[in-house]
């Protein structure tokens, strides 16, 4: 928990230079402006959640941050350098884990893919794979193929592969959107503790407002057509978060109300 406390201190400091920054970033695809003049800085170690109605461009914003898209104008920078292409130090957790995993590789093989790309030697890989699978709660499943695993396990596996990149930033695109409520809550807590241990910066896209407040240090709500920032809320809830106590906290309820009102207004 000492790590978690340190992490929070780091993220609370408003003076820290942003690690990942959108500077007037605009993206047009096929003549349609998806994101317009987005200005947003994410501090090192911060857990930023992006919410918004469907079609507001939150996934697009994440893809810009990942370097999978290039802004039409403006810039997206990481550690002060423009993101001209994806980088290994920024890991992406996709929502559709079923498509993002290699079906012909076992769980161990899928984690190994990231280690191979990172130039980790053959002799070092088994121990690392073992530790990573243990970390995400999949010990003993190393030799299973993704198709033999449940949705929650597959998403854990994808997270393990992302952690194998030893990322400075973790970009998560509605990672638990396809999972049932119980699995989802379990994974939320696991992600919080994994992130606290790794000290990674996180951008977490979700359409679940409760999830955003529960996880984040800050929640940004986007307005649609074109996507731009509509609301920005600092979440001053004590860490570590707790599924019951945090969700019953008066501050949680206040933020939840504010965010719901915002989303409702955007949908009209």
């Amino acid at each position: 928990m000492a790590i978690a406390a340190k992490r929070q201190e780091a993220s609370v400091s408003p003076l820290a230079a942003p690690q990942l920054a959108f500077a007037d970033a605009t993206l047009a695809l096929g003549g349609k402006t998806i994101i317009e003049n987005l200005n947003l800085g994410v501090r090192p170690g911060e857990f930023l959640c992006i919410v918004g109605a469907s079609g507001c461009g939150k996934t697009t914003a994440l893809r810009l941050a990942a370097g999978l898209y290039q802004p039409t104008s403006g810039a997206v920078t990481f550690d002060g350098q423009p993101m001209l292409q994806p980088r290994r130090e920024i890991a992406i957790v996709f929502q559709d884990y079923g498509k993002a995993l290699l079906p012909w590789r076992t769980a161990a093989g899928n984690v190994s893919l990231a280690l191979e790309a990172g130039g980790i030697s053959v002799t070092e890989r088994p121990a690392r794979i073992d530790a990573l699978l243990r970390k995400v709660g999949l010990p003993g499943h190393a030799e299973k193929y993704p198709a033999e695993m449940s949705g929650g396990m597959q998403q854990r596996l994808q997270i393990a592969r992302c952690l194998a990149q030893e990322p400075k930033a973790l970009l998560m695109d509605e990672p638990f959107g396809a999972l049932d409520a119980m699995t989802r809550q379990g994974l939320q807590d696991e992600v919080l503790s994994l992130v606290a241990a790794s000290n990674a910066t996180v951008i977490f896209v979700t359409h679940d407002l409760d999830e955003a407040i529960y996880l984040g240090d800050r929640v940004v709500g986007l307005l649609p057509h074109p996507g731009r920032i509509g609301i920005e809320l600092a979440v001053n809830l004590p860490r570590p978060r707790d599924q019951l106590a945090t969700r019953e906290h008066p501050e949680f309820l206040r933020l939840r109300r504010q965010l719901f009102d915002f989303i409702k207004a955007t949908e009209q």
Binding site: A66, L68, Q85, P86, R87, R88, I90, A91, I92, F94, D96, K99, A100, L102, L113, A114, E116, A117, G118, Q165
Partner: peptide, 19 residues
């Protein structure tokens, strides 16, 4: 999606073909 995974891992062209 797998090509995007490969891009985010900065895999070489050859690695993308063979892996």
């Amino acid at each position: 999606r797998l090509y995007e995974v490969a891009r985010s891992l900065q895999m070489s062209r050859l690695a993308v073909i063979f892996k």
